[in-house]
Design a protein around this nucleic acid. Sequence first.
DNA 1: TTCCAGGCGTATC
DNA 2: GATACGCATGGA
Length: 267
Amino acid sequence: MEYLKQGKDILLKVSDLDLDETLDCGQAFRWERTGIGPDCAYRGYMLNTPLHVAAEKDHFRFYDTDEETFINVWVPYFDLETDYSEIKKILSEDAPLSKACAYAGGIRILRQDSWEALCSFIISQNNNIPRIKGIIGRLCEMYNGFPDFTGMKGVTPDDLAPLRAGFRAKYIADCVSKLNSGEIVLENIKELPTEEIRKILMTIKGVGPKVADCAMLYGMYRIDCVPMDVWMKRVMEQFYPEGFPEFVLPYAGIAQQYLFHYMRTGT
DNA sequence: TTCCAGGCGTATC
DNA sequence: GATACGCATGGA
């Protein structure tokens, strides 16, 4: 990974990054493609830090981005200091994973904010991606940006009716309540063993194993977590009835992302 | 009209 | 602990 400043923009050179594969593969819901066809560009946010990013010939252009924001926000968000070539090399020892990596090798795991990821994946349950985006979009309209949970203190399901989140409104309210009371402190539990974090997150109404694993994988960078949705269950039944091979386990969450995308959009 | 969507809570055995 | 069923909403 290397970058240079060009006027107000930052130009990034990095391998193993495809904006479509990374920003539009169901791990984050606040990115909109602005480019037409091969002219690939996105606008979106990490919490309330905006970004307009475009893929150009041999680099990515981060429009109107100062160096401090780039280093502190976007380098970790896009996981730019992780060598995905090396990880793919390891994973490709396995046949199905080799295909999945070749199919969409530009996927990266986005290191999102823990609260934003938790809230987003509570909304994601039994839901489709366009509607998830709609609900989160209305949440941001309601609070003039993605709210911090402290800004939602005392919120009731009725208050959230304009989101049209359906039965998920009461889950969001319970999550907000537990975070504001201090019953759960995300910054603290981040450091605990994965199993303990999962158990704590699952005390929130509407957070089961799948949502908890998404919150950990995307919001706490626990890349050993494998969110088991309907697609991954099919993958596991079909290719890994005995579970992943041992050498995959440390990167199982990343493997999951390649396989999930391959299963959903590939052949 | 019916079915389904990156699940989960609840009831029941 | 395993298995069925309802759940809000909206698009196909």
